[in-house]
């Protein structure tokens, strides 16, 4: 298989990132369990995207408790006040946070604060330089309002740019959207297929709308529904997609942003043209073609305009 090295390279990238951000998590006083959760969630998403033969991490047993130890922090006297104090307010907000879609990770905040305290107290009180509670001048006030981070979108924030951040929690009743979002891709396929079958049988025009996020919709399409246009219901096709490359690429001329699912991200050594023949020499590419990822070290392209 042409993409057989993808898994190993992705494995390397994940491990390298996690290894190297450990210190940043410590510096910001974020517990290591969160870092492991990041890794687990990241791996799960890659596995689910099916772009490579990537194994999903073992599901953690639902009974496993992630004690949010930071919620029990005590600041050593004289420490900067910003780090941990407000976090306890988070307790209730996070207690049933569940990750989509592999089901049932229930994060439970320890019921007895004293237990947490017991874990943390020795290191903080003895003032050794363990990360917890270490005064960190640059730690920003941690979410005293748990929603504080919601409106911040990351640069290069994905194909759907601002969509994630503009997705407030649903408060108006049935969360059918959430259900769809949290379906596994297999369930999603089945669901979509069923809907199409129904529509075909009824010989009506296929105009049903899927209230999926843009990304999920693409994924569904990639997973075997090519050819069906999934009605976009969340406004204009996002031309203002934040590509993370600076604004240059975003100034649409619509044709360029004709989003196809197949994307090659790479660097160029040389691009040349003779009349209508183009040649380009590319390197270090990540390609997503027909739902599979491929990597290349070098690539030669011949185009005719």
């Amino acid at each position: 298989m042409a993409n057989s090295n993808v898994t190993a390279v992705y494995r390397f990238v994940i491990d390298d990132v996690i290894t190297n951000v450990r210190r940043d998590f410590e510096d910001m006083g974020v517990d290591e369990t969160i870092m492991h959760e990041l890794q687990r969630s990241w791996e799960t998403k890659i596995a689910q995207s099916r772009v490579a033969s990537f194994q999903a991490p073992e599901p953690v047993a639902a009974v496993e408790v992630y004690p949010f130890e930071e919620s029990g922090y005590e600041q050593p006297p004289g420490a900067s006040t910003s780090a941990a104090a407000p976090v306890s307010a988070l307790g209730s907000a996070t207690s049933t946070y569940s990750t989509p879609p592999l089901a049932s990770y229930n994060y439970r905040v320890e019921q007895t604060p004293a237990a947490n305290l017991a874990n943390v107290a020795p290191s903080t009180l003895t003032g050794d330089n363990s990360n917890v509670g270490r005064p960190q001048a640059h730690v920003p006030p941690r979410a005293s309002n748990p929603g504080a981070g919601k409106n911040i979108s990351l640069p290069g924030g994905g194909r759907n740019g601002t969509t994630n951040s503009s997705n407030p929690p649903q408060t108006d009743g049935a969360a059918d959207m959430a259900e769809l979002e949290f379906m596994s891709t297999a369930e999603l396929d089945a669901y979509v297929e069923k809907r199409f079958r129904e529509a075909r049988e009824a010989e009506t025009e296929v105009t049903f709308t899927l209230t999926l996020s843009d990304r999920a919709a693409r994924k569904a399409k990639r997973d075997g529904l090519e050819g069906f246009a999934i009605g976009q219901v969340d406004g204009e096709e996002d031309d203002d997609d934040d590509t993370g490359l600076g604004s240059d690429l975003d100034d649409s001329d619509g044709d360029m942003d004709d989003e196809s699912d197949n994307v090659v991200l790479c660097q160029y050594d040389k691009v040349s043209r003779t009349k209508s023949k183009w040649k380009c020499v590319l390197k270090d590419g990540i390609m997503l073609i027909n739902g599979r990822d491929y990597l290349f070290h070098k690539a030669n392209g011949d185009f005719e305009w």
Partner: peptide
């Protein structure tokens, strides 16, 4: 930064977004 738009990058962004929204990490991290 443009590799962030790859599958593996988008997966990471999604995971980070979730952790931000649940208040476990801040955008700076």
């Amino acid at each position: 930064e443009h590799y962030r738009k790859s599958s593996i990058g988008l997966a990471l962004i999604d995971s980070l977004d979730e952790l931000i929204q649940s208040g476990h990490i801040n955008p700076q991290l």
